[in-house]
Every structure is written in structure tokens, then in C-alpha cells.
């Protein structure tokens, strides 16, 4: 034995404890574009959260709106000369800047809320399909196929036509149309991961199935789920905007970005571009920044794409 003890000794290699999380964070911030997008998105989130504190006006309080101030150009003073409409007003005299801040709130709540709920539903069903297999798998995946074969906007419109308007109903419709993406992603990953030997090792160590799924399988299925989740938040926000634009989304008294755009649409050609334009820019910047973060997350979290 003595002849080989030297070879048996472990060789010191890595200089410090590098957790997978730390490695992920440092890799994420290597990209300037993604870092910038994350900063922009964080600002948007902060603005949305603190909208009631920082917005010049409460755009949902009809008592604060003055119809006489309707369709004022950006930079105009209000009738009472107490404030400036930096981004103009819409046809009801609503300050566009305040409207956008509150609209972002609705968009983000709807987007994130539906994405998280859809992720919970979809991921559980996907995990169940992968682990149970057989008939359960077939039934779940047929449902997924069915859901994905319908145009998203069409299913959402049908659901809203049935349920009626309202933020909760929009969230519900979005969950129904989006869960399938999560289910498909999680099932695919889980099928690959569960064939890995660390799962067999855990079975051999007589750990209970529940523990194997939640402590070993699920954490290793998270990266694609996070990527899909990010992209789906952006999709949900766009979808909510579309539904509101079509008049099936949020109520008219509490306009989201999509409804603000719709309200200004008829004035576009008469030169009053700002009513649609600025909410449109806000929507665009939000969606693009989320997508940029999501794309980069995919690159960082997917080991196969790494050089």
C-alpha cells in the first residue's frame, strides 16, 4: 500500500469555496448588455412599486382629473397652474407620466403574478408527468399539446369573453394559456435529469421519493424553468397589453399600458402622438429589458452553450 499512498492524497486545487450561485452571479455580470438591462428593469420595478409616492397625480382618481386639461402637449402646465404634464395628457386630462407609472404597476403585477402561478401549476404537472410516466404522462402531455396548438391570443380572448373583464380574470386567462410552456420545459429537463446517476445513487441510498424529487431532481431542473419564467413574464405583459388594447382586459377606469395605448390610438393621426407613444415606449423598454435578461440567463445557466 505504501507505494501508492502519495498518489492517494488529494491534490489541493481550487483557491476558494465557489458556490454554484456565486459562479452564476459573476458570469451573469460579465455581460454589459444584460447588466444594463437588469439595471433598467430594476428601475422600472422600483418606479412601479413606488408609483403612489412619486407620481405627480393619482391617475385612477377621477376627482383629480380635469377634462379641460385633455390632450395637452408634453410640457404643458395644468389649468390651475400647479403642475406640469411632462409627457402630456390623454383625452380625459390624465397626466401621462402618472398613467404610465400606474400602468407599469398593473402590467408587472399581472405579468409576474400570472407567470409565477403558471410556473407553479406547470412545473408541478411537468414534474409529475416525468416522474410518474405512463398514462399520467400521456394525459398531461396531450393537454399541453392541445394548449400549445391554439394561438395564445385566441384562447385568452375566449376565456375573457367567458369570464368578463378584470385584473384577476386576465391573470387567470394568462395562467391557463401559459402553464403548458412550463410543463413542457420541466418535463423535458426532469426526464434528462432523472436518468442521471446521482438520482440512482439517491435511490440506492434508500432516500424517500419525495426527498429525491424535491431535494435532488427539482433544484437541478430550475435553470431552464427560470429562463422560461423570465421570458414568459415578458410575454404575459405583452399579452395583457394586447388584451387591454382590444378592450377585453383591465377596466377603463384603471388603465394599464395597453389600454393607455388604445386610448391614444385614435389621436395618432391628428398629431397627438404622445398619448399612445410614451406608454408604448414604456412597454417596449420593459419587455426588451426582461427579454435581454432572460436571454443572457439562458446562456449562463445552460452549460451546453458554454465554450
Amino acid at each position: 500500500m505504501s507505494a501508492t499512498t502519495a498518489g492517494d492524497a488529494p491534490v489541493a486545487k481550487a483557491p476558494r469555496v465557489e458556490t454554484p450561485f456565486r459562479r452564476f452571479v459573476s458570469e451573469f455580470f460579465e455581460s454589459k448588455i444584460a447588466t444594463g438591462a437588469l439595471v433598467v428593469f430594476s428601475v422600472i420595478v422600483l418606479v412601479a412599486i413606488f408609483a403612489p409616492l412619486i407620481s405627480p397625480q393619482n391617475p385612477y382618481d377621477l376627482a383629480q382629473l380635469d377634462i379641460m386639461d385633455g390632450r395637452l402637449e408634453p410640457g404643458s402646465r395644468n389649468g390651475a397652474d400647479t403642475m406640469t404634464y411632462w409627457l402630456g395628457t390623454d383625452d380625459q386630462g390624465r397626466d401621462m407620466l402618472s398613467g404610465i407609472m400606474y400602468g407599469l404597476r398593473i402590467s408587472l403585477i399581472v405579468g409576474a403574478g400570472s407567470a409565477i402561478a403558471a410556473a407553479l401549476v406547470g412545473a408541478s404537472l411537468g414534474m409529475l408527468a416525468a416522474y410518474a410516466g405512463g398514462r399520467t404522462d400521456t394525459v398531461i402531455m396531450r393537454l399541453v399539446d392541445l394548449q400549445l396548438s391554439f394561438p395564445t391570443i385566441l384562447s385568452a380572448l375566449m376565456i375573457l369573453a367567458f369570464l368578463g373583464k378584470g385584473i384577476m380574470n386576465v391573470v387567470l386567462a394568462l395562467i391557463v394559456v401559459e402553464w403548458a410552456y412550463y410543463a413542457r420545459t420541466v418535463r423535458g429537463t426532469a426526464l434528462v435529469e432523472r436518468r442521471r446517476e446521482y438520482i440512482e445513487a439517491a435511490q440506492c441510498l434508500a432516500l424517500p421519493t419525495r426527498r429525491i424529487i424535491f431535494r435532488h431532481l427539482l433544484p437541478n431542473c430550475m435553470p431552464p424553468l427560470i429562463v422560461v419564467g423570465t421570458i414568459q413574464i415578458a410575454r404575459a405583459i405583452a399579452l395583457e397589453a394586447t388584451l387591454s388594447f382590444l378592450g377585453l382586459g383591465v377596466p377603463i377606469t384603471e388603465p394599464s399600458l395597453g389600454l393607455l395605448i388604445a386610448n391614444g390610438y385614435e389621436y395618432m393621426l391628428s398629431g397627438k402622438y404622445w398619448i399612445s407613444f410614451y406608454p408604448g415606449i414604456a412597454l417596449l423598454v420593459t419587455i426588451v429589458s426582461i427579454n435581454l435578461v432572460g436571454d443572457h440567463l439562458r446562456d449562463v445557466l445552460n452549460p451546453r452553450l458554454k465554450k
Binding site: P20, E197, A201, A206, N220
Partner: peptide, 29 residues
């Protein structure tokens, strides 16, 4: 009875859960 027989696998990377520390990998069971 399960614990009496254990397996050592071929691929040393995929047989270890990448998200656990060595102490957790060894000590969990």
C-alpha cells in the same frame, strides 16, 4: 436492506448532485 448494497457509478460528475456540497452529498443518507 437497500443500504447493504451500494453502487459506484461510471461518470464521476453526473453521479454527484452538482448543487450539494461534498459534506451534504456524503452525509445526507
Amino acid at each position: 436492506a437497500m443500504l447493504q448494497a451500494q453502487m459506484i457509478f461510471q461518470d464521476p460528475m453526473s453521479s454527484l448532485n452538482p448543487r450539494l456540497k461534498v459534506a451534504e452529498i456524503i452525509g445526507e443518507a
